[in-house]
Each structure stands twice: as C-alpha cells, then as structure tokens.
Design a protein around this nucleic acid. Structure first.
Ligand SMILES: [Mn+2]
Ligand SMILES: [Mn+2]
Ligand SMILES: [Zn+2]
Ligand SMILES: [Zn+2]
Lengths: 144, 144
DNA sequence: TGCCTTATCGAAAATGGTTTTCAATAACTA
DNA sequence: TAGTTATTGAAAACCATTTTCGATAAGGCA
C-alpha cells in the first residue's frame, strides 16, 4: 500500500532540492529515513521512524531525531499530537489539514478550509491548524 | 485583568460538583491550583502552574501535574501545543475552539464552528480541533 | 465534636524521551 | 584524487514527567 494524498516523487525531489540549497548532504541515512516517511501514511514517533529505517540501512536514533527536526523546521513535515504522543508526518507544503485515525495513526490530508471568512476581532491570526480525529476505513471494520 | 470567555464562578462550581461525584476531596492545594487556572487566560506549563499557586499556598509540583491530568481527563482542561511545548488551559466543557497567542500564550475561546457540513468520505470523524495561532491585541502593540 | 477511614500530599527516586558531545566517517567540491 | 567540512552515532547529559511510599488531612459518621 502506497501513501495517499501526496505526490511522493515530486515531494522527494523538492526536499532534495531544498536540502541542496541549504548545503545539506544527501546521505544514505537520510535517504533511508526519507524513504520510510515517503512510503507511509501514518504519523510516526521518532522511535518508529528509526526502527523502520533500520530494515534497509543502519541508522542511529539520533539521526532520526535530526531529520525530523530539519523537515519540520523547513515545512516538509508536521507534528501531530495523537493520544498524548507527538508524532510526525511528511506533508506537502501547500495549505491543507488532517484527518487523523486515532487507532492506527493514519493521516489523510484534505484541502478544504472554511476558516477564511471568520471574524477574529482584535486578534491577529498568522496560521491555523485543523485536525479531524476519528477512525479510518480499515479501523472501522477491524474494531466494529 | 480577569480571564475572559468563561464564566469562572459557574465553572468552579461545576468542577467542585464533578470532583465530589468522583469521590475526590477538595483540598487546599487543589483550591489554590484551581484558583490560578481560573484567573488566567494563558495556557500554562505544569511548572508555571506550580509556581503561580506557590504564591498563595505551599503546593508540590507533583500535585500540579496531578490536577492537570485529572482536569484534562474529565474534560475541564485542554492541552495545547504552543512553540513545541505542551500547555494546559481550563476550558468550558461546551464545544468551542481557540485563538492562541504564540507570544504570551493567551488563549481566547470562540464558538463558531464551520466543520459540520464537510465531506469526510469513508473516514469516520469523532472529534476535531481547530486552533488559530497569531498575536493577541496586547502583543501586537508591544512588539510591532 | 472527635474518630476513623482513606484519598491526598510531596520529597525523593525512577523513568524515559530528547538533546548534546565529540571523535570517526563519508559527502561534496575543486 | 585530495581536501574540506557536514554528518553520523554511541555514550553521556539533560530534563520533563511519573512512580513510590510514609506522613497528612479531608470529610463522613457516631
Ligand atoms: Mn499533511
Ligand atoms: Mn478552551
Ligand atoms: Zn486507522
Ligand atoms: Zn499575546
């Protein structure tokens, strides 16, 4: 099963380009970690990312933390709080929001955004976050 | 400056009632901690809650953690992720969302919710979270 | 009111996720 | 290919949160 909602090849080359612009090297370890992030639709903990990447390449947990930090900082990943845990998901850099399965941590993106016309009074908004929590199709069947 | 958006007296008695129903005692420590939460409009870290309560009553940090856990579990407080930190805010138990100042951590509630009519496809939604980040009125002036 | 049961408190220790350190290594450039 | 320098990862440090457990106090009841 391939990850949905994103154009993975496009995203991958965008990330490579950005890394290059920032003078970052494209190491085997980063390649392996990024491959994991590109082929999952779940939001992962750093530990999970580390374990998954381990299957194809020897990577350190520290390196998993580092790539998460970098990707999040430059806007290619987002943190999501699910069941009290911080998890990370590769994201397309366009504006979108998330449907989050609280059972398997699958994250589906959706683009509709209803927040534009709202009245915020004297508050000056700069960004926002919308998360729909629930059960994905698979998890509805599994645990009816 | 008193906390906005909530009817603090009403909220306080609701919490007392709920605590009583659960067989929880209303100790001096909880009184002091709750007083802090009721009189601030900021989302606090456990450490900040502890320090603020300390001014009127001797409280342990552990107790601050415990009341946050309890209030969150029974729906009278919510966790918000601000600048990478988990912060907690007393909340009215009615459905609402948040405008969050990323500078002073002030949280204003708003009730409008545009998410009802959306099409979630095969995803089964159970709850959602909407957060508007930005600058409150004070912080706009202060750091122009 | 005073007693008794038991929830609660908090200091200290344990836990565990995340960050820092630093010497060895590998990626890019010329 | 050689040289420069970003990157790696094991180990240590860090620090927020949880657990432990003996002492304390809340609150129901006689
Ligand atoms: Mn996304
Ligand atoms: Mn609220
Ligand atoms: Zn699921
Ligand atoms: Zn502010």
């Amino acid at each position: 099963m391939t990850a949905s909602n994103r154009d993975d090849e496009k995203l991958k080359s965008e990330i490579r380009l950005r890394f290059h612009q920032l003078g970052q090297r494209f190491t085997q370890e980063r390649e392996a970690l990024l491959a994991v992030l590109l082929t999952t639709d779940r939001a992962l903990t750093p530990q999970e990312l580390y374990e998954a990447a381990q299957k194809s390449e020897t990577v350190g947990l520290t390196t998993a933390y580092r790539i998460i930090e970098t990707l999040t900082r430059i806007g290619f990943a987002q943190v999501i709080l699910i069941n009290g845990e911080l998890r990370y998901r590769l994201c397309s850099p366009t504006h979108h929001h998330h449907m989050v399965c609280t059972q398997c941590q699958k994250v589906e993106e959706f683009a509709e955004c209803q927040l534009e016309g709202l009245d915020y009074g004297s508050f000056h908004p700069t960004s926002h976050r919308v998360e729909i929590f629930g059960l994905c199709e698979q998890c509805q069947k599994g645990s009816s």
